[in-house]
């Protein structure tokens, strides 16, 4: 970690980074801590260890229902956003065409838009068309929300992809479809998996769209929102939240490991391209 000459190395900075990381992680670590606390309130000092809040989750049918809904939505959203993301990311990294910037801008816009506004706009158009609110409407809306994330992952995956690999395949007699199957797909597979995992995570944690568009079938965040009004339900929510945080972190770690392995491989391939 020795800095190059001219790049100052402050003694305060590592301390600041530590405080900053503590600030980031404190609220997230707090939920699991209280989820094992043998009290219905969230106060210090802690009142002893228990797993009863977790046990109570298993007998809560409304919660299990919401978890099932979240799974359906998450898987559908992950697949849809990844498929749509592949088309767009591939078009952007592989071809040059007019309107490319505008198209990219529109697809990435949800990153730069207050979520409430497109939640409301989707609600309006859906009700206007007379479509019943259901998990399907949640899926349709969340795909828009997840596309920018899927796109970022896929674009960086495809961007490292060397076009001459496909040309080499064509040159060796393979057809366009065969080339996609035998070269493109295997090489970008890690990016696809990464995109699926990231989209699933985003969908699992997404609240606003689900809140507006889910009708009578709540996803997990919508279920939690409903429970927050009741102080007595708090420990159960904390336990559920801890499980969700754990799932999110596991999925993200997995996606990161896959992405970095692929990057390492592609970098070795691309070393000569420079």
């Amino acid at each position: 970690m020795s800095g190059r000459h001219g790049i100052p190395k402050s003694r305060w900075l590592p301390a600041y980074v530590t405080v900053y990381l503590a600030f980031l992680y404190f609220p997230i670590l707090l939920l699991p801590i209280f989820s094992f606390n043998n009290a219905a309130t969230t106060t210090f000092p802690l009142a002893g260890f228990t797993t009863k809040w977790y046990a109570s989750l298993w007998h809560n049918t409304a919660l299990l229902e919401a978890a099932r809904n979240s799974m359906i939505v998450g898987v559908s959203v992950a697949i849809l956003s990844t498929v749509l993301g592949i088309c767009a990311a591939r078009a952007i990294t592989r071809y040059r065409f007019r309107g490319q910037r505008a198209a990219t801008g529109l697809i990435m816009a949800p990153l730069f838009l207050p979520e409430i506004i497109f939640a409301v706009s989707l609600l309006m158009i859906i009700l206007q068309l007379g479509v019943e609110l259901s998990l399907v409407t949640v899926i349709l809306g969340q795909v828009i929300f997840c596309l920018p994330y899927a796109m970022s992952v896929l674009i960086s995956g495809f961007g490292g992809f060397d076009r001459s690999l496909e040309e080499a395949s064509l040159d060796l007699g393979e057809t366009a479809i065969g080339t996609f199957r035998r070269v493109t797909l295997p090489v970008v597979a890690p990016a696809l998996v990464s995109s699926l995992l990231v989209s699933f995570t985003v969908s699992l944690d997404e609240f606003i769209l689900a809140f507006f568009l889910s009708g009578t079938e709540p996803t997990l965040p919508v279920y939690i929102w409903g429970q927050l009004r009741f102080a007595a339900k708090l420990p159960g929510v904390l336990a559920l939240g801890s499980v969700m945080i754990l799932i999110s972190i596991l999925l993200l770690t997995l996606s990161e490991i896959i992405r970095r392995r692929a990057e390492h491989r592609l970098r070795a391939q691309g070393a000569l391209n420079a």
Partner: peptide
């Protein structure tokens, strides 16, 4: 009936 050796060799990484 031609084959090519690419500038960066384009060896399939997988």
């Amino acid at each position: 009936p031609t084959n090519m050796v690419f500038q960066n060799y384009a060896i399939f990484p997988h």
